[in-house]
Design a protein around this nucleic acid. Structure first.
Length: 304
DNA sequence: GCTTCTCTAGGCC
DNA sequence: GGCCTAGAGAAGC
């Protein structure tokens, strides 16, 4: 399927890959292995539990992440998370314009954000015109919401979250006074733009609108500055926005992030490297981190 | 190592 | 004020 992306800010036609069917196998693999992380199961055991052949499992992972199942699963262990945190991130000084991706972030999803005024937020989305739609993506069935100013929300539909209806209620419920209409065709274009690394280009930044309280928006902006393939902690985020003791409040704000994946709340974890939580399920958080790990280290992907 | 306890900040009603 | 958190660190096992 070939998709033409119509956002004037982003522009080029691109092939949609979105191997959404592979995600189900990846998800089951992650669930199985994280249940028994003490004793890492072999490929054969995993394939049996996921009810696919070993060769198929291998092929799915290579197609989906560009890594062997073994390499992928190593990338989502707690040890690896600790190593990510150990690297540390340079603190940005207060004057630094966070959120806007610089040219140095070659592999990242380039984003230009706009924050919704507190006034507009108080009115619970009154006056907002939201279009939404569902499309398949690499992390399952994806709900996208947008306004004429850019992308406003991303959520996921699965049985744990009440299917399409539950996901929609969750997302639209954040702006109950907004008017909304559905457009699945354009939603497919958004999903292709967001989840296709080839479309991440500095000269065609993704426009997003952050709609939240001042505090929430500050946390989300800071999250946008965490590079792909790296991780941070809630405590570190708190220190970076100038409230070093507010780790818990930061966690709450991160949990309310409306634009999942784009605002990389999956790159935030507890101080021990434990994943601690994710609005759309810990398995999905783990999958996103592993997927990004593969993307950030293409060299490691090809090594046996 | 994991679990429990205590002290938290901030948002929201 | 009171009530929630996708927290953190110490203490105990």
């Amino acid at each position: 399927m070939t998709l033409q992306f119509t956002d004037p800010a982003a522009g080029t036609p691109l092939e949609a890959l979105a191997p959404q069917d592979d995600y189900e196998i990846v998800r089951r693999t992650l669930e199985f292995t994280s249940e028994r992380y003490r004793r890492q199961p072999t490929l054969a055991e995993t394939a049996r539990a996921v009810r696919v052949g070993e060769a198929h499992l291998e092929a799915v992972f290579r197609r989906w992440a560009g890594l062997s199942p073994k390499a992928f699963l190593q990338a989502v262990t707690i040890d690896h998370a600790r190593r990510l945190l150990g690297q540390g991130l340079p603190l940005l000084d207060a004057a630094h314009e966070v959120g806007l991706s610089g040219p140095s972030r070659l592999h990242d999803l380039f984003v230009r954000f706009e924050a919704m005024s507190p006034g507009a937020h108080k009115e619970r989305g009154a006056g907002l015109e939201i279009t939404y739609g569902f499309a398949d993506g690499p992390f399952g069935r994806t709900l996208v919401l947008w306004t004429d100013r850019g992308l406003a929300g991303i959520g996921f539909s699965d049985s744990e979250h009440g299917g399409d209806e539950g996901a929609l209620r969750d997302m639209l419920g954040r702006w109950p006074a907004a008017r909304s209409r559905r457009d699945d065709t354009e939603a497919r274009l958004w999903v292709a733009r967001v989840f296709e690394p080839a479309a991440w280009r500095a000269e065609a930044p993704l426009r997003i609108v952050l709609i939240g309280t001042n505090f929430e928006v500050r946390v989300w902006e800071r999250l946008l500055a965490v590079p792909l393939g790296e991780a941070t902690t809630y405590g570190r985020l708190a220190a970076e926005i100038g409230s070093p003791k507010a780790a818990r409040a930061v966690g709450a704000a991160v949990g309310r992030n409306p634009i999942s994946f784009v605002v990389p709340c999956h790159r935030a974890m507890g101080s021990t490297g434990a994943l601690t939580g994710y609005h759309w399920g810990l398995t999905r958080k783990r999958a996103m981190l592993g997927w990004e790990f593969a993307l950030a280290r293409p060299a490691a992907a090809t090594r046996p």
